[in-house]
Design a protein around this nucleic acid. Structure first.
Length: 189
DNA sequence: ACTTAGATGTGA
DNA sequence: CACATCTAAGTA
């Protein structure tokens, strides 16, 4: 097993910044999930930024509801929701409380303890055992957190339009999906 | 490449 | 009621 430094856990201040910046900087970082005494670790290779109530692709564009309560809450917490009745999606809440901004984690490169596919937001959650129970979870917690790690080559970051948001009019076209070019674990090229 | 099914919570 | 930050399986 290759050595991995899990000591530098990302703090709340990391998340309390511009959403697109957080999205870009999350590439290469490690997502750590603890299930019982088992650790599952993956390197983030694909994310999407959701920019708040004015962003028609963001759930916060529907306003503050029972579902979006966590999304409008403080940064550094997990916004987890069910999509298409079958798959869970994990987002990290960003910026100031009330901003309704978040970054969707779309794909991981397996690092340790991951035995299932992680290319795509639904598969990622299934592989890590993430469901609605973790909605609102503090992302600096033992159960679920992220760890700083160097990104070998920042020039590999590509920005394209987000997936599955065609209904969002002009917002659907903005380059808010970020991924590592050529990485085989990205959900689509 | 395109087509469709699958399951269910959410908001209108 | 229509649709959703998706995936798998089918046809070609």
């Amino acid at each position: 097993m290759e050595p991995v430094d899990l000591s530098k856990r990302l703090q709340l201040s990391f998340y309390q910044r511009d959403t697109q910046l957080v999205a870009r900087e999350l590439l290469g970082k490690l997502l750590v999930r603890r299930v019982g005494d088992e650790l599952r670790v993956g390197r983030i290779v694909e994310v999407e930024a959701y920019l708040g109530p004015q962003d028609l692709a963001a759930h916060s564009s529907k306003g503050l509801t029972k579902r979006t309560r966590v999304l409008f809450g403080p940064a550094g917490h997990a916004y987890v929701y069910l999509v298409y009745g079958m798959y869970w999606c994990l987002n990290v809440v960003t910026e100031a409380e009330g901003s309704g901004t978040a970054v969707l984690l779309r794909a991981l490169e397996p690092v340790r303890g991951i035995g299932a596919r992680t290319q795509g937001p639904g598969l990622l959650c299934r592989a890590l055992g993430i469901d609605g129970e973790l909605n609102g979870q503090d992302l600096t917690s033992e159960e679920l957190h992220q760890v700083d790690a160097p990104l070998a080559d920042p020039a590999l970051i590509v920005a394209k339009s987000r997936i599955g948001v065609e209904y969002a009019k002009e917002w659907a076209r903005l380059p808010l999906r970020f991924y590592l070019a050529g990485n085989p674990y990205v959900s689509r090229s």
